[in-house]
Design a protein around this nucleic acid. Structure first.
Length: 232
DNA sequence: AGCTGATCATTG
DNA sequence: CAATGATCAGCT
């Protein structure tokens, strides 16, 4: 047991999956304010200027490796950490960003070897009761769980991935909007609408377009949550 | 009320 | 610029 009144240093990497889950369970029920205070981390008034603050806090507390390297948060465990904002009824409030979508060099790309599949293969979900009227410091950490996609879930993601990737390969990335896909979406992922990255048009000619990312739709993450509760 | 497009901070 | 962490907020 840790002394909750003391200031804790950044947590070392978890030794195994069980220890990681235990750590997440240990902070379930705490508020973000308490948790930040325990680690002497300054909490912002809101997330307007620090949208990723909650995710970074949980990384710190659970011992995820820092940085922006393209690998899982817990490389030795092959586990990705995702915070999931939900309302009091357990419904996700936002889509879940997974990774940037490649818009070029897609020759030979398959769902099986895709970056998104690798990222989503095993996830520690940490729900946060995060309705906007609740001040950031008072939002509560919910019950965490580790998940891997079921065959059905994976098939649904693979289908959407193929549809979206086909459009990208055909040079139609700019025709894709958030309505495409049943469980996955392709949406902007950029500092602003002026950001540009290279893509390839239908004639194989490079052009600049807005960077995109893959997101999980809220209906999909909601089902993941409900399935987990049913299995408890 | 839900959703899509836009946006913010930080680090190699 | 790309990748990490995501949520904001106007429109339908």
């Amino acid at each position: 047991m840790v002394d909750k009144k003391s200031t804790l240093a950044k947590t070392p990497p978890p030794l195994d999956e069980a220890q990681l889950l235990q750590r997440a369970q240990d902070i379930a029920g705490l508020s973000l304010g308490e948790t930040a205070s325990n680690y002497a981390i300054k909490i912002p008034d809101n997330l307007n200027k620090e949208k990723g603050w909650v995710g970074l806090l949980l990384e710190h507390v659970l011992g995820a490796s820092a940085g922006s390297r393209p690998e899982p948060d817990f490389p030795h465990l092959g586990i990705e950490l995702k915070t999931l904002p939900i309302n009091r009824q357990g419904k996700p409030l936002e889509t879940t960003f997974v990774c940037v979508a490649p818009l070029k060099n897609l020759i030979g790309a398959t769902w099986q070897n895709s970056h998104i599949r690798n990222k989503i293969a095993r996830v520690l979900w940490v729900p946060i009761i995060a309705e906007r009227e609740i001040p950031l410091a008072e939002r509560l950490i919910g019950t965490p769980f580790i998940w891997s996609p079921s065959l059905t879930e994976e098939n649904a993601m693979a289908l959407d991935w193929q549809e979206l990737t086909d459009m990208i390969v055909l040079g139609q990335v700019e025709q894709i909007n958030g309505k495409h896909g049943q469980v996955l979406q392709l949406r902007p992922k950029a500092a602003n609408s002026q950001a540009k990255t290279q893509a390839i048009d239908k004639n194989g000619k490079p052009f600049l377009t807005l960077p995109r990312g893959f997101y999980l739709k809220t209906s999909f993450t909601h089902q993941i949550l409900k399935d987990h509760l049913r299995l408890d």
